[in-house]
Write a protein that binds this DNA or RNA. Structure first.
Length: 275
DNA sequence: CGTTACCCCTGGAGGC
DNA sequence: TGCCTCCAGGGGTAAC
């Protein structure tokens, strides 16, 4: 479910609440999410203060006194994860796998499919964690430009859509926003990345940025104690132009939206508007 | 090195 | 009502 905007909105929802608070207890009700949860993690976390909450790609990074013999808690929401803040003592429901208990509130992680990731990284240098070190560029930075993406794709013959979703190249673009960005830029998801010209990448990159920022803005206006809505419709955008709209008219030309499969994922696009 | 297939897991939707 | 199949917003890993 969560792509970059959802993770960023979750982060912003936690920022006014958690930094400065100490972890009173950590409760794990599932033996593993994507990875095993070490048996001593609860005692390691207990007593540590949250100094900051950062985001890298779709990972939330909780700075737990990393500069003072603490470390980092890495959280990835996976496909079905969501966070909420509940009153201490609130009974967990099914799939509520993790609680970080603070004095006045509890951060609760729910993840039915358990594709989420929870990892502890001892020490200060989170950028050295192998999963973080392998991540590509942040799409909302100035360094992510049409010229940069053009240069990066010269030897990539794979279709542009799965490439946009490759977090080793650029982080945070999931299945929904890849489809929406390509529609906005008029580029076919099937087109080989190295057969797209510089000018078209100069259109695609701002389209990606606009789609992501619009979604963050839309999500940021909701929620307080419910950090992230897990509504099945997806999209913080009020409506998607093409995603999950197979057979429905393209908002630009009226041609039916087409659904295909790429790399095991569904892709939606307008065959008339996107080339 | 680049690309693809598979796998982790549960639940909801739709066909019969 | 039940059973079956397919699908779902991610991504790491292994194999070609």
């Amino acid at each position: 479910m969560p792509e970059l905007p959802e993770v960023e909105v979750s982060r912003r929802g936690l920022l006014p609440i958690l930094p400065g608070q100490c972890i009173v207890d950590a409760v794990f009700r599932a033996p593993k999410l994507r990875h095993e949860i070490p048996s001593q993690l609860s005692s390691r976390l207990t007593g540590l203060r949250i100094d900051a909450i950062q985001r890298r790609g779709k990972y939330l990074l909780f700075d737990c006194e990393s500069r003072h013999s603490g470390g980092w808690l890495l959280l990835h929401l996976g496909m079905s994860g969501s966070l909420r803040l509940v009153a201490p003592g609130t009974a967990p429901q099914k799939h509520d796998h993790v609680d970080l208990v603070f004095t006045a509130t509890t951060l609760r992680f729910r993840d039915p499919r358990r594709f989420g990731t929870l990892l502890w990284h001892e020490g200060q240098a989170i950028e050295n964690h192998p999963l973080i070190a392998a991540l590509g560029i942040e799409p909302l930075t100035d360094a992510f430009s049409g010229d940069w993406l053009y240069e990066q794709t010269r030897r990539r013959s794979t279709p542009i859509k799965p490439l946009l979703m490759d977090s080793h190249l650029v982080v945070g673009i999931g299945n929904i926003y890849a489809a929406e960005s390509l529609f906005a830029a008029g580029i076919s998801p099937l087109r080989a990345a190295n057969r797209i010209g510089r000018e078209r990448y100069r259109a695609l990159v701002p389209a990606i940025r606009t789609v992501l920022e619009t979604s963050i803005a839309a999500g940021g206006s909701s929620v307080r104690d419910y950090v992230h809505s897990d509504g099945g419709a997806g999209c913080f955008q009020l409506s998607c132009a093409v995603y999950d709209r197979a057979g429905q008219p393209c908002p630009t030309c009226g041609q039916p939206v087409r659904a295909i499969r790429q790399s095991g994922r569904s892709t939606f696009y307008c065959p008339r508007c996107q080339h």
